[in-house]
Amino acid sequence: MTARVRGQLYGVSGSRSVTAWLDREGDTLRWCDEAGQALAVAPLDACEVSEGPGGAAAFVTLPHGQRFETREGAALLALGAGAGGFRRAWVSRLEGHGGAVVLAVLVTALLLYAGVRFAVPAMAAEVAEAVPPSVAQGMDRAVLRGFDEGVLAPSRLALADRERVEALLAPLIPGVPSHVRPALAFRDGGEAVGANAFALPGGHIVVTDAIVELLTDAELQAVLAHELSHGAARHSLRRGLQFSGLAVLWSWVTGDLGALLTILPVTLLEMSYARDFEFEADAQAVERLVGIGRDPEALAQALGRLSPAGTEKASSGYLSTHPPTAERLSALAAAVERVRGWEENL
């Protein structure tokens, strides 16, 4: 004999309710009030149950639209169990099963990891590859326009200086995929941007006056080789796509969540992708420099000069789009070793 289930019984036409006790006799459900007076009777198989997930309120809909609400969901299912009766949803069994919950954590973590580590970057690379050069260059113009209205001012460099920098870039261009059109954009970055260079989606490389004045020709060429590698591999396009991919993946897995909770982890992950790209561009720059007979050590010297030892914050690791300089320098040294190794074997 199962226990009676206590709840509220609502009428068809409005919010009026009575406290009721549900009992079962064979295949009939019977609701009574406190005094044992019958309130409603219905065949079990004509009633619909909506179980409350995780102890939430459960509801029974009677044939004529009356409704019974109870907090005793487990007792309700036990009462209505059997042929033609109430059945517990399979997903509810999974949720109640410790092993299934652990498995769900593992499956989700594994698939998420695979998505973040492989699927998103691979899909972004694929899509970036398919973007026509005209579209990518249109993006360059839009980005430059944005910068020019904000932090960047027209360059004050003399024509001779610009031609000198163009001449440094020219020998590096062969070997760049044909759909990338490298071009220099000289700008004055002032205090805010300082000595810097960056690659845009379509192949433009923005070079600030300060970096041209700060670095030697060899170092500047190494920096251009690095930025050219970003452009050749369409890194900035891929970063944008990866960010969207991550945001979709994250919001899809977590459901709707406040914007802040979405942006924070996605931004952290995106930064880790960006750091991977820096290492990749460093390594490719070394190859490009060696390929035209230049000393790849110049890149390390340029890095050292752009961020002198000790100026970086110790905590910058996870919160930066660029890896710490020391880490980049040691990876660079390894890349130089590797490329020199190939040279000797040839």
């Binding site: 997930p53 999974l94 499956v107 989700t108 897995v253």
Partner: peptide, 12 residues
């Protein structure tokens, strides 16, 4: 428990 089981099913 509900969340993780339903998220796993959604991903799968």
């Amino acid at each position: 428990r509900i969340w993780v089981v339903n998220v796993a099913l959604s991903v799968l």
